[in-house]
Amino acid sequence: MTLTSIHRLVLAAAAGAGLAVSLSACVPLVVGGAAVVGAGMVATDRRSSGAQLDDQGIELRAAARVREIANDQMYVSVTSFNRQVLLTGAVGSEADKRRVEDVVRRVDNVRSVVNELTIGAPSTFQQRSNDTLIVGKIKASLLDAKDVFANSFKVVVERGTVYLMGIATRRETDRATDIARGVSGVEKVVRVVEVVSEAELAGQGGGTGAAPASRSNVPLPPMEPLPPVNSPSSGAAPSGGAGVVATPVR
């Protein structure tokens, strides 16, 4: 890893440590982090500027809706990308899981909801700290890669499961998946990605233009859990020196 990448990783880890401390309190809901968008990010983001603003509004409105029904057993994170919402965290029952999804679906401009809420206890402070560190490592690795456009993806991590959200080609998505799975602590990668062709990207500014707002979502299948290193069932060679083994896409 280059010195610049190490510097980025240190900054990401420092920011993550601050975030993890803030999450140690009894916070019932977390917004996905799109509350502030700089001009530089708008220019390099494949979402339209309207979609980026919608994502901010969706996250804030969804947070407010979930707070209205929240109880002591809810810890919900809401992340919106191109008007598609990812729900992660934990709730106390199947009924609560459905209630959260229902209220979020009714938020203006939401196209679809991917409900990855689990039933049980919320993640611990240590788990959230580890997740934040993994996010920083993945982002630094994506920035370090020369064959993938890092801003194509938003990275969300919950208990070692990595969610990649974005607008990208299948090649970019597979490459980003390989990068994420090469990071220590990653147990599974789930792709919540709108797949576009190389021709579509070329027609919209060589990879930095916005994808059509009306495009339907085409999620890729989730990845299998990573088997232990040197496991006879792994069927693949260890990747990238990170102590994990990549398994095929289902």
Rank of each mutant, 00 (worst) to 15 (best):
P122L: 10
P28I: 10
G206E: 02
S49N: 13
V195I: 15
A213I: 13
P28W: 03
P28R: 09
P238I: 06
A213H: 03
D55C: 12
N109W: 15
V10G: 07
A20P: 07
K146P: 10
R83I: 11
V42A: 13
E101P: 14
P232S: 09
A150P: 02
I69T: 11
A199W: 04
G207Q: 05
I119D: 07
E172D: 03
G92D: 00
G241S: 13
V42H: 00
E59G: 14
V100R: 04
S152E: 00
A237Y: 03
G185M: 03
A180L: 02
P219G: 08
F81V: 10
V42G: 03
V249E: 02
M74W: 04
I134H: 05
I6H: 07
T132P: 09
F125T: 14
A43K: 08
P28C: 13
L117A: 12
S216T: 14
V156F: 01
V107H: 11
Y75I: 09
P232W: 06
I69R: 08
G92S: 10
V21A: 14
Y75C: 13
R159A: 11
L142C: 02
V148C: 05
V36R: 11
N230T: 08
A62G: 14
R105N: 14
S184G: 10
M223A: 14
V183E: 00
A35H: 09
D72V: 06
S93D: 03
R170F: 08
C26P: 06
A95C: 12
M165K: 03
P232R: 07
A51K: 00
A70I: 10
G33S: 11
G89N: 05
G92R: 05
K137I: 11
D55V: 08
V27D: 00
A211G: 15
L201I: 02
S239I: 09
V85W: 01
V36W: 02
A64E: 09
I119M: 12
R46M: 01
D102M: 14
A39T: 10
D108W: 15
V192T: 04
T132Y: 04
T247V: 15
V27I: 12
V113C: 13
V190C: 05
D45N: 10
I167P: 03
L133N: 02
G120Y: 03
N82V: 05
L29K: 07
V66W: 01
